[in-house]
Design a protein around this nucleic acid. Structure first.
Lengths: 147, 147
DNA sequence: ATGGATGCAAAGCCTTTGCAAGCTT
DNA sequence: AAGCTTGCAAAGGCTTTGCATCCAT
Protein backbone atom coordinates (compact mmCIF):
# COMPACT_ATOMS: atom_id res chain seq x y z
CA UNK A 1 0.00 0.00 0.00
CA UNK A 2 1.20 3.44 0.87
CA UNK A 3 4.63 2.41 2.05
CA UNK A 4 5.31 0.25 -0.94
CA UNK A 5 4.09 2.97 -3.20
CA UNK A 6 6.49 5.48 -1.73
CA UNK A 7 9.37 3.08 -1.88
CA UNK A 8 8.85 2.32 -5.51
CA UNK A 9 8.97 6.03 -6.11
CA UNK A 10 12.30 6.20 -4.40
CA UNK A 11 11.13 7.85 -1.20
CA UNK A 12 12.24 6.55 2.13
CA UNK A 13 10.04 5.53 4.98
CA UNK A 14 10.98 7.29 8.15
CA UNK A 15 9.14 7.33 11.46
CA UNK A 16 8.35 11.01 10.98
CA UNK A 17 7.03 10.42 7.54
CA UNK A 18 4.84 7.61 8.71
CA UNK A 19 3.40 9.65 11.52
CA UNK A 20 2.74 12.64 9.30
CA UNK A 21 1.05 10.61 6.61
CA UNK A 22 -1.04 8.72 9.12
CA UNK A 23 -2.07 11.86 10.92
CA UNK A 24 -3.00 13.58 7.72
CA UNK A 25 -5.41 10.85 6.78
CA UNK A 26 -6.94 10.76 10.23
CA UNK A 27 -7.76 14.42 10.25
CA UNK A 28 -10.39 16.58 8.71
CA UNK A 29 -10.20 16.51 4.95
CA UNK A 30 -8.98 20.12 4.77
CA UNK A 31 -6.09 20.93 7.01
CA UNK A 32 -3.46 23.63 7.11
CA UNK A 33 0.20 22.97 7.75
CA UNK A 34 -0.23 24.36 11.23
CA UNK A 35 -3.10 22.11 12.09
CA UNK A 36 -1.26 19.05 10.92
CA UNK A 37 1.89 20.20 12.69
CA UNK A 38 0.02 20.55 15.98
CA UNK A 39 -1.56 17.16 15.56
CA UNK A 40 1.73 15.51 14.78
CA UNK A 41 3.45 17.21 17.70
CA UNK A 42 0.98 15.64 20.07
CA UNK A 43 2.54 12.34 19.19
CA UNK A 44 6.12 13.38 18.69
CA UNK A 45 7.37 16.65 20.11
CA UNK A 46 10.59 16.48 18.18
CA UNK A 47 9.23 16.75 14.68
CA UNK A 48 10.09 19.98 12.93
CA UNK A 49 7.72 22.26 11.13
CA UNK A 50 9.55 21.98 7.88
CA UNK A 51 9.37 18.23 7.98
CA UNK A 52 5.62 18.44 8.20
CA UNK A 53 5.56 21.01 5.48
CA UNK A 54 7.75 18.99 3.18
CA UNK A 55 5.79 15.84 3.70
CA UNK A 56 2.58 17.64 3.00
CA UNK A 57 4.17 18.72 -0.21
CA UNK A 58 5.11 15.13 -0.87
CA UNK A 59 1.57 14.03 -0.23
CA UNK A 60 0.47 16.48 -2.89
CA UNK A 61 3.15 15.38 -5.23
CA UNK A 62 2.12 11.77 -5.16
CA UNK A 63 -1.41 12.88 -5.84
CA UNK A 64 -3.03 12.24 -2.50
CA UNK A 65 -3.90 15.84 -1.77
CA UNK A 66 -4.11 19.23 -3.32
CA UNK A 67 -3.52 22.74 -2.11
CA UNK A 68 -6.62 24.83 -1.81
CA UNK A 69 -7.03 28.44 -0.93
CA UNK A 70 -10.32 29.48 0.52
CA UNK A 71 -9.46 33.13 0.42
CA UNK A 72 -8.63 33.63 4.07
CA UNK A 73 -4.92 33.59 3.44
CA UNK A 74 -4.32 30.14 4.76
CA UNK A 75 -3.32 27.32 2.50
CA UNK A 76 -5.16 24.16 3.21
CA UNK A 77 -4.56 20.69 1.86
CA UNK A 78 -7.55 18.92 0.49
CA UNK A 79 -7.32 15.19 0.61
CA UNK A 80 -8.09 13.86 -2.81
CA UNK A 81 -10.71 11.23 -3.08
CA UNK A 82 -11.71 9.40 -6.17
CA UNK A 83 -14.45 11.86 -6.95
CA UNK A 84 -14.02 15.55 -7.61
CA UNK A 85 -16.06 17.74 -5.33
CA UNK A 86 -16.89 21.31 -4.58
CA UNK A 87 -16.63 23.23 -1.32
CA UNK A 88 -19.14 25.15 0.68
CA UNK A 89 -16.86 27.33 2.80
CA UNK A 90 -18.18 29.05 5.89
CA UNK A 91 -16.59 32.47 6.12
CA UNK A 92 -17.10 32.48 9.86
CA UNK A 93 -16.16 29.08 11.24
CA UNK A 94 -14.01 28.14 8.24
CA UNK A 95 -15.59 24.76 8.06
CA UNK A 96 -15.89 23.08 4.72
CA UNK A 97 -18.75 21.01 3.43
CA UNK A 98 -18.18 19.11 0.27
CA UNK A 99 -20.67 18.54 -2.43
CA UNK A 100 -20.97 16.68 -5.65
CA UNK A 101 -19.97 18.53 -8.78
CA UNK A 102 -20.49 15.97 -11.50
CA UNK A 103 -22.95 18.13 -13.29
CA UNK A 104 -20.90 21.28 -12.89
CA UNK A 105 -17.70 19.62 -13.99
CA UNK A 106 -19.43 18.40 -17.09
CA UNK A 107 -20.31 21.93 -18.00
CA UNK A 108 -16.86 23.23 -17.17
CA UNK A 109 -15.17 20.56 -19.19
CA UNK A 110 -17.14 21.66 -22.19
CA UNK A 111 -16.27 25.26 -21.59
CA UNK A 112 -12.62 24.36 -21.40
CA UNK A 113 -12.77 22.49 -24.67
CA UNK A 114 -14.53 25.37 -26.33
CA UNK A 115 -11.65 27.57 -25.26
CA UNK A 116 -9.02 25.08 -26.33
CA UNK A 117 -7.83 24.71 -22.80
CA UNK A 118 -5.97 21.66 -21.62
CA UNK A 119 -7.59 21.12 -18.24
CA UNK A 120 -5.64 20.18 -15.14
CA UNK A 121 -8.16 20.85 -12.45
CA UNK A 122 -11.34 22.44 -11.32
CA UNK A 123 -12.16 24.59 -8.37
CA UNK A 124 -15.74 25.10 -7.41
CA UNK A 125 -16.50 26.98 -4.26
CA UNK A 126 -19.41 28.64 -2.64
CA UNK A 127 -18.60 31.05 0.13
CA UNK A 128 -21.12 32.05 2.70
CA UNK A 129 -22.27 31.24 6.17
CA UNK A 130 -23.32 27.85 7.38
CA UNK A 131 -26.56 27.42 9.22
CA UNK A 132 -24.91 27.65 12.62
CA UNK A 133 -23.04 30.83 11.80
CA UNK A 134 -25.78 32.64 9.99
CA UNK A 135 -26.86 34.66 12.98
CA UNK A 136 -23.32 35.89 13.30
CA UNK A 137 -22.87 36.92 9.72
CA UNK A 138 -23.59 40.57 10.39
CA UNK A 139 -20.61 40.76 12.68
CA UNK A 140 -18.46 40.08 9.70
CA UNK A 141 -20.07 42.29 7.14
CA UNK A 142 -17.39 44.87 7.83
CA UNK A 143 -14.47 42.57 8.15
CA UNK A 144 -12.87 44.33 5.26
CA UNK A 145 -12.03 47.55 7.03
CA UNK A 146 -9.68 50.15 5.71
CA UNK A 147 -6.46 50.65 7.62
CA UNK B 1 -20.55 58.74 -10.47
CA UNK B 2 -17.55 57.26 -8.76
CA UNK B 3 -16.43 60.42 -7.04
CA UNK B 4 -19.83 61.28 -5.71
CA UNK B 5 -20.30 57.75 -4.59
CA UNK B 6 -17.11 57.81 -2.56
CA UNK B 7 -17.92 61.16 -1.06
CA UNK B 8 -21.30 60.07 0.11
CA UNK B 9 -19.58 57.19 1.81
CA UNK B 10 -17.34 59.59 3.64
CA UNK B 11 -14.20 58.89 1.65
CA UNK B 12 -12.11 61.72 0.38
CA UNK B 13 -11.03 62.29 -3.17
CA UNK B 14 -7.30 62.71 -3.43
CA UNK B 15 -5.15 62.87 -6.53
CA UNK B 16 -3.57 59.56 -5.61
CA UNK B 17 -6.91 57.93 -5.13
CA UNK B 18 -8.18 59.20 -8.42
CA UNK B 19 -5.14 57.94 -10.24
CA UNK B 20 -5.30 54.55 -8.60
CA UNK B 21 -8.96 54.06 -9.28
CA UNK B 22 -8.61 55.20 -12.86
CA UNK B 23 -5.63 52.99 -13.48
CA UNK B 24 -7.35 50.00 -11.98
CA UNK B 25 -10.24 50.29 -14.37
CA UNK B 26 -7.97 50.77 -17.34
CA UNK B 27 -6.03 47.62 -16.72
CA UNK B 28 -6.60 43.98 -17.25
CA UNK B 29 -9.52 42.74 -15.22
CA UNK B 30 -7.27 40.72 -12.90
CA UNK B 31 -4.37 42.59 -11.47
CA UNK B 32 -2.11 42.14 -8.50
CA UNK B 33 -1.09 44.94 -6.18
CA UNK B 34 2.32 44.99 -7.78
CA UNK B 35 0.97 45.32 -11.27
CA UNK B 36 -1.27 48.17 -10.30
CA UNK B 37 1.53 49.77 -8.33
CA UNK B 38 3.83 49.68 -11.33
CA UNK B 39 1.17 51.12 -13.57
CA UNK B 40 0.40 53.91 -11.16
CA UNK B 41 4.06 54.73 -10.68
CA UNK B 42 4.40 55.35 -14.38
CA UNK B 43 2.17 58.34 -13.87
CA UNK B 44 3.26 59.42 -10.43
CA UNK B 45 6.56 58.28 -9.02
CA UNK B 46 5.73 59.50 -5.56
CA UNK B 47 2.85 57.22 -4.75
CA UNK B 48 3.57 54.68 -2.07
CA UNK B 49 2.92 50.99 -2.22
CA UNK B 50 0.67 51.03 0.77
CA UNK B 51 -1.47 53.72 -0.74
CA UNK B 52 -2.07 51.52 -3.72
CA UNK B 53 -2.73 48.58 -1.49
CA UNK B 54 -5.16 50.46 0.70
CA UNK B 55 -7.05 51.85 -2.24
CA UNK B 56 -7.32 48.44 -3.77
CA UNK B 57 -8.82 47.36 -0.51
CA UNK B 58 -11.19 50.28 -0.71
CA UNK B 59 -12.17 49.30 -4.21
CA UNK B 60 -13.09 45.90 -2.87
CA UNK B 61 -14.89 47.37 0.06
CA UNK B 62 -17.19 49.43 -2.08
CA UNK B 63 -17.92 46.36 -4.13
CA UNK B 64 -16.07 47.17 -7.32
CA UNK B 65 -13.63 44.31 -7.11
CA UNK B 66 -12.92 41.13 -5.29
CA UNK B 67 -9.82 39.34 -4.20
CA UNK B 68 -9.12 36.15 -6.05
CA UNK B 69 -6.45 33.60 -5.54
CA UNK B 70 -5.52 31.49 -8.49
CA UNK B 71 -3.26 29.28 -6.46
CA UNK B 72 0.07 30.72 -7.46
CA UNK B 73 0.44 32.63 -4.23
CA UNK B 74 -0.36 36.00 -5.67
CA UNK B 75 -3.51 37.80 -4.74
CA UNK B 76 -5.24 39.34 -7.68
CA UNK B 77 -8.14 41.72 -7.76
CA UNK B 78 -10.95 40.81 -10.06
CA UNK B 79 -12.96 43.74 -11.23
CA UNK B 80 -16.58 42.99 -10.59
CA UNK B 81 -18.91 43.34 -13.48
CA UNK B 82 -22.64 43.01 -13.41
CA UNK B 83 -22.44 39.35 -14.32
CA UNK B 84 -20.72 36.65 -12.33
CA UNK B 85 -18.17 34.71 -14.30
CA UNK B 86 -15.74 31.90 -14.06
CA UNK B 87 -12.02 31.81 -14.79
CA UNK B 88 -9.95 29.70 -17.06
CA UNK B 89 -6.51 30.14 -15.56
CA UNK B 90 -3.42 29.24 -17.51
CA UNK B 91 -0.90 27.71 -15.14
CA UNK B 92 1.91 28.76 -17.41
CA UNK B 93 1.31 32.29 -18.59
CA UNK B 94 -1.07 33.15 -15.75
CA UNK B 95 -3.53 34.66 -18.13
CA UNK B 96 -7.19 34.52 -17.30
CA UNK B 97 -10.06 33.95 -19.63
CA UNK B 98 -13.50 34.54 -18.28
CA UNK B 99 -16.53 32.55 -19.11
CA UNK B 100 -20.20 32.59 -18.42
CA UNK B 101 -21.36 30.66 -15.38
CA UNK B 102 -25.08 31.28 -15.35
CA UNK B 103 -25.84 27.64 -15.62
CA UNK B 104 -23.26 26.62 -13.08
CA UNK B 105 -24.29 29.27 -10.60
CA UNK B 106 -27.84 28.07 -10.85
CA UNK B 107 -26.76 24.62 -9.81
CA UNK B 108 -24.53 25.93 -7.04
CA UNK B 109 -27.25 28.13 -5.65
CA UNK B 110 -29.45 25.10 -5.31
CA UNK B 111 -26.73 23.17 -3.63
CA UNK B 112 -26.23 25.97 -1.16
CA UNK B 113 -29.90 26.09 -0.32
CA UNK B 114 -29.97 22.36 0.16
CA UNK B 115 -27.20 22.75 2.68
CA UNK B 116 -28.84 25.70 4.39
CA UNK B 117 -25.96 27.93 3.41
CA UNK B 118 -26.34 31.68 3.19
CA UNK B 119 -24.38 32.38 0.02
CA UNK B 120 -22.01 35.31 -0.31
CA UNK B 121 -20.13 34.38 -3.40
CA UNK B 122 -19.08 31.79 -5.90
CA UNK B 123 -15.75 30.82 -7.25
CA UNK B 124 -15.54 28.73 -10.36
CA UNK B 125 -12.17 28.05 -11.84
CA UNK B 126 -10.64 25.76 -14.36
CA UNK B 127 -6.89 25.45 -14.22
CA UNK B 128 -4.91 24.21 -17.13
CA UNK B 129 -2.92 25.38 -20.08
CA UNK B 130 -4.15 27.71 -22.74
CA UNK B 131 -3.71 26.85 -26.36
CA UNK B 132 -0.52 28.85 -26.67
CA UNK B 133 1.09 27.28 -23.64
CA UNK B 134 0.04 23.71 -24.22
CA UNK B 135 3.26 22.67 -25.84
CA UNK B 136 5.06 23.87 -22.77
CA UNK B 137 2.92 22.11 -20.23
CA UNK B 138 5.34 19.22 -19.79
CA UNK B 139 7.96 21.59 -18.51
CA UNK B 140 5.75 22.25 -15.56
CA UNK B 141 4.60 18.78 -14.76
CA UNK B 142 7.23 18.63 -12.05
CA UNK B 143 6.81 22.10 -10.71
CA UNK B 144 5.97 20.63 -7.38
CA UNK B 145 9.37 19.39 -6.46
CA UNK B 146 10.41 18.36 -3.01
CA UNK B 147 13.05 20.45 -1.30
C1' DA C 1 -9.64 72.58 12.62
C1' DT C 2 -10.26 67.75 11.80
C1' DG C 3 -10.39 63.41 10.59
C1' DG C 4 -9.41 60.71 6.67
C1' DA C 5 -5.33 59.81 3.41
C1' DT C 6 -0.49 59.24 2.34
C1' DG C 7 4.53 57.52 2.49
C1' DC C 8 7.95 55.26 4.54
C1' DA C 9 9.80 52.01 7.21
C1' DA C 10 9.04 48.26 9.86
C1' DA C 11 6.41 44.44 11.39
C1' DG C 12 3.68 40.30 10.45
C1' DC C 13 2.81 35.90 8.66
C1' DC C 14 3.05 32.05 6.36
C1' DT C 15 5.88 29.69 3.06
C1' DT C 16 10.57 28.02 1.63
C1' DT C 17 15.26 27.03 1.79
C1' DG C 18 20.42 26.31 3.39
C1' DC C 19 23.00 23.30 5.96
C1' DA C 20 25.01 20.06 8.88
C1' DA C 21 23.79 15.86 11.03
C1' DG C 22 21.09 11.62 11.08
C1' DC C 23 18.76 7.63 8.99
C1' DT C 24 17.06 4.33 5.46
C1' DT C 25 18.60 1.33 1.95
C1' DA D 1 28.74 4.18 1.69
C1' DA D 2 25.22 7.18 -0.70
C1' DG D 3 21.59 9.83 -0.78
C1' DC D 4 17.24 10.97 0.93
C1' DT D 5 15.43 13.11 5.38
C1' DT D 6 15.24 15.82 9.29
C1' DG D 7 15.52 20.01 12.45
C1' DC D 8 16.71 24.37 13.22
C1' DA D 9 17.42 28.75 12.02
C1' DA D 10 17.22 32.00 8.72
C1' DA D 11 15.66 33.87 4.51
C1' DG D 12 11.85 34.96 1.39
C1' DG D 13 7.86 37.11 -0.44
C1' DC D 14 3.76 39.26 -0.04
C1' DT D 15 0.48 41.50 3.06
C1' DT D 16 -0.44 44.87 6.89
C1' DT D 17 0.32 48.28 10.13
C1' DG D 18 2.41 52.32 13.12
C1' DC D 19 3.15 56.90 12.82
C1' DA D 20 4.06 61.51 11.80
C1' DT D 21 2.68 64.48 8.20
C1' DC D 22 -0.33 66.16 4.74
C1' DC D 23 -4.51 67.51 2.69
C1' DA D 24 -9.64 67.47 1.41
C1' DT D 25 -13.58 69.28 3.63
Amino acid sequence: MMKEFLKTKGFKITPQRELIFRSFFEMDKHVSVDELYDKVREKDRSIGYSTVWRNLKLICRVGLAQKVNMGDGITRYDRLTKVPHGHLFCLNCKRVVEFNVDQVVGILANTAVENKFSTRGFKVEVQGYCQLCQSESEKHADDEEIH
